[in-house]
Design a protein around this nucleic acid. Structure first.
Lengths: 257, 257
DNA sequence: TTAACGGTTCACATAATGCGAACGGTGGAC
DNA sequence: GTCCACCGTTCGCATTATGTGAACCGTTAA
């Protein structure tokens, strides 16, 4: 769901949160550094920082503001909404059987957030998971497969909101081209990217549904193009992916009961 | 550091964040439920919710707003400021050698946040870690030990900010009584609580310093009073605690080089 | 069919925020 | 040692963004 609708939006809260996100992204920022990233005079930014500090979302280290540990603590509470445990098992399995990197990503507000990733059985470092790892739908394998299952209207809403930034040379830039490709993807049940998200990377991905049959995210496997045979990508690897999705969804239905 | 100083504080951001925290605490809230928890008319709360939604801090499930998974993603980035890996090892060890529950908590804004806890070698469930698990300093073992190492002025600042809520019958309510007890704690290097935080629970705790010798949090071990011999608490268990702290700080110094 | 309930919208008054200039403290350059 | 540049902080004022409450809709239950 993109839920493009929404009543009045408070400017003050918006900029405060944007400042928090910048602090997170840069692993700490000083007032002078934020000046220029945020429009408005230093004094305004100062007020926002004071507020974030007083509400304990940031901590001061000298003159630089750093995200508080409390933020992690809060995040822990947000985590349980997704079946992280199940995701870990399924992803580990998928990475082991294919020998490539597997990921489960959560769908939220028309973006994909990495929940868990593993490469050849070993979990990816936490460094790889974070704010910057919000993927678009139009240039990811699972993303395209998700779009393919959405109503046309909703697809438009997602593209309207996020655009179609060109990450690599191969990224689809044309809206109609993307829309036209969705029918085929929908039919075969999985999407692929051929260097469309990162150079040299090919990936297969598919949507994951919860017990109520709503899409909760995407599962994907992929690796370097030189190593992966395109025929295999469309046959064995895609099969293993879809099997993993089946297993995932079976586990979700079991959890619910 | 409590850093009681702080310039102008923005009311709008403050209430937005407070709403977010309530949503987190209750695992999702509807507008009607928030009305009453937050003062102000529904329409104001609605604006805040719309803002949090647009900024992707919450997600809608029907009429209830739930914390977004993105919040977890953001939290991951805040985590690395603390030596979680080291903490896990040390806490696991301490729990194993003592046979009781051990915890490492992070000191921030005059409160202690659980970073990692283990009981008899097994990690505690994630459920036990969260917003509600922000401990006070005045009624926790590690907290009192931390206060004992602070300047008098800073201790006052902490108490001024957070007060001394009475969690159990045994909780110290008198400010002077607390202040007077700190000298003794400081001398022996560890603090204890005798049912002051939870009924039937006794705990020993001590501060943990980073390579720069500033307090980053507290380590503690404890368990049910009926099982723990008070003499042992002050001797063997305290010894093992302090040894664990040593190990912790040694690892931190090694990390820095 | 109606009433109750909850979310959403709107126009208005006001108070909270944005603003810019001035202040103060610190560190480096000359 | 002095001066300058830099950065965080403070303050008063103008204005605009927010708080407010009433009215509006859509849904559900009586």
């Amino acid at each position: 769901m993109v839920e493009e609708i929404g009543g009045r939006t408070l400017k003050t809260t918006g900029t405060s949160l944007r400042i928090l996100e910048l602090i997170l992204e840069y692993d700490g920022l000083a007032l002078a550094e934020l000046d220029g990233m945020i429009d408005g005079p230093k004094s305004s930014i100062h007020s926002h920082l004071s507020t974030l500090h007083r509400c304990r979302y940031v901590v001061r280290e000298g003159d630089t503001y750093v995200a508080s540990f409390r933020l992690w603590s809060m995040g822990q509470r947000a985590k349980h909404r997704y079946p992280v445990k199940v995701a870990e098992e399924v992803v580990d399995d998928l990475a082991a059987t294919t020998g490539e990197e597997a990921n489960f990503t959560a769908l939220e507000h028309g973006r994909l957030l990495i929940v868990y990733g593993a490469s050849e059985g070993a979990p990816l470092a936490d460094n790889d998971v974070g704010v910057q790892d919000e993927h678009y739908l139009h240039n990811t394998a699972a993303g395209k497969a998700i779009l393919a299952e959405m109503e046309r209207e909703e697809v438009e809403a997602v593209i309207d909101r996020w655009g179609m930034p060109q990450e690599t040379q191969a990224t689809i830039r044309d809206r109609n081209q993307l829309l036209n490709s969705l029918a085929e993807i929908s039919e075969r049940g999985y999407g692929i990217v051929d260097e469309e998200s990162a150079p040299g990377l090919v990936v297969v991905g598919a949507p994951v549904h919860d017990a109520d049959d709503t899409i909760i995210g995407g599962l994907s496997v992929g690796g370097p193009k030189y190593r992966i045979d395109f025929a295999a990508l469309h046959s064995e690897i895609a099969d293993e992916l879809l099997e993993a999705v089946e297993e995932f969804e079976r586990a979700l239905r079991a959890d619910r009961s």
